[in-house]
Design a protein around this nucleic acid. Structure first.
Length: 256
DNA sequence: ATGGTCGTTGCACGA
């Protein structure tokens, strides 16, 4: 089973790239983020023709997450199932695919340390932990994948000094991510590869991609029973090249 | 040299 996650940064613009990538890589499940589409604008026919069922949780011009599956898709949950008032932003969707409970997440960016959006980000990660407690069992096959907007440690940024005091690397963000993982999830890519310099996002500006100035902020978190099935993990840098790329590359994990 | 580019919408802002 091949599971992937990709922040596509506008599915409207990226659809040709996403179609070509699905045709080439053929993941069984793809978590997408930043579709930037309303639910009624989602191109279901395009993905249906490629063999995928889709759960999309969109809101219009911003955010928007999806789970695509060609191994079955059921039990869709749009938004948090934590009993609290709905999140006004479309950032999480859950579905069961081929025996794995899959959640696609687009964690808030945070904008600046101390900003309202930064506190929203930390609270959002707390709600994600509660959502897992309400919807899943850590003894089951569970995957939480998406754009976490957090570099888990200093290996995951090109220059730790350049990020001092900025979002994505603060202890509070890293601890909030660790609290989600403490529910019972392993960073599948990091479990497979220990070296730094392996990034999933590069700013469009200043040739950052070609200069190697990136961060690893797109993660596939797996419960123990899924993590022990991992046979391969890769970040597909090729998808960041060429015409009209997303600023994120897909993360792909193969399971036995 | 302290910028740079995208995608949204609409002539600014978020990432």
């Amino acid at each position: 089973m091949r599971i992937a996650t990709w922040n596509v940064n506008s599915l409207k613009v990226r659809l040709p790239r996403v179609e070509a990538w699905l045709d080439e890589v053929r993941p069984d499940v793809l978590c997408m983020q930043e579709t930037k589409l309303a639910d009624d604008a989602f191109p279901h026919l395009t993905f249906g023709a490629l063999g995928y069922e889709v759960a999309h949780h969109g809101q219009g011009q911003w955010n928007g997450v999806a789970v695509l599956s060609r191994v079955g898709l059921e039990g869709v949950i749009a938004g948090f199932a934590d009993g609290a008032p709905p999140d006004p932003e479309a950032r999480i969707v859950t579905a069961r695919c081929g025996g794995v409970l899959v959640t696609s997440v687009y964690v808030p960016n945070g904008r600046a340390v101390g900003h309202d959006h930064y506190h929203y980000k930390l609270a959002w990660l707390g709600r994600l932990r509660t959502h897992l407690e309400a919807t899943a069992d850590p003894a089951d096959d569970v995957v939480v994948a998406g754009d976490f907007n957090i570099a888990p440690d200093d290996r995951d940024v090109y220059d730790p000094a350049a990020f001092a005091g900025t979002t994505h690397v603060t202890p509070a963000e890293r601890e909030a991510l660790a609290a989600v993982e403490a529910w019972g999830l392993v960073d599948a890519f990091r479990a497979r590869w220990s070296e730094g310099g392996l990034f999933s996002w590069w700013d469009y500006r200043a040739g950052d991609f070609h200069q190697g100035r990136g961060m690893r902020i797109d993660l596939l978190l797996a419960s123990a029973s899924v993590a022990e099935r991992v046979t391969w993990a890769v970040i597909d840098r090729n998808a960041r090249k060429g015409q009209q790329p997303s600023d994120h590359a897909p993360v792909v994990v193969d399971l036995a």
